[in-house]
């Protein structure tokens, strides 16, 4: 699937660029994109080490279990196949906690760690398990208590209430999350 999207993005770009006379821009954009992947990875490397490290402490101390109990009603619906107290469910819980608290630079490292645990749980099969699919869908839906980055952006422009969008954001992202998980549950049967 990613094959098609990746190639479609580039083919469409080149055709549009040719039609609009922007071939030069597209060429330099390709090179800039490759370079920015490396800068992103280097930044991510530090953050990844930091959160993987703190995550290990929280796991060893049993703190993760407390979060797991709090989120259990939600995780039970989304991941019915993950055993209670499993390492995979612990990692999933930490990622969801980070997402809920709006800690976006913690959510990715914790999410990647969770993917590895889910993969182990799935016996390293080349086919994604239902839990893996559901977990990625949760992470593409972004449910957070305080949408901090958009609020601070609104604050910088001013001229109104920057916080007025919080409740609408909750409702819209809850709808996105519920639709995503429901669709995933319907599709997993085939």
């Amino acid at each position: 699937m990613l094959n098609y999207i990746w190639s479609a993005l580039m083919i469409i770009s080149i055709i549009c660029a040719a039609a609009l006379g922007r071939l030069g821009e597209v060429t330099s954009a390709a090179i800039d994109g490759a370079a920015s992947a490396i800068t992103t990875a280097i930044t991510l490397l530090g953050i990844m080490c930091m959160w993987s490290g703190f995550m290990s402490i929280a796991e060893q101390s049993g703190l993760v279990k407390l979060f797991a109990i709090l989120l259990r009603p939600l995780t039970k619906w989304i991941f019915p196949e993950l055993p209670k107290n499993s390492k995979a469910l612990n990692s999933v819980t930490m990622n969801m906690t980070a997402n809920l608290l709006g800690m976006s630079n913690a959510a990715t490292p914790l999410g990647l760690a969770a993917m590895e645990e889910l993969d182990r749980e799935n016996g390293h099969s080349p086919h994604a398990s239902n839990s893996i699919c559901a977990f990625v869908v949760v992470n593409t839906a972004s449910f957070q208590l305080i949408p901090a980055s958009i609020i601070s952006l609104r604050q910088t422009f001013g001229g109104g209430d920057p916080y007025e969008i919080i409740a609408p954001v909750w409702i819209a992202s809850a709808i996105a999350l519920i639709v995503g998980i429901t669709v995933a549950k319907m599709m997993q049967r085939n």
Partner: peptide, 17 residues
């Protein structure tokens, strides 16, 4: 996320997302 593990078939993930 899928790059972190070696999965060839992500099944319905993209459509659902």
């Amino acid at each position: 996320y899928f790059a972190a593990i070696r999965i060839k078939n992500m099944r319905h993930t993209l459509k659902a997302a």
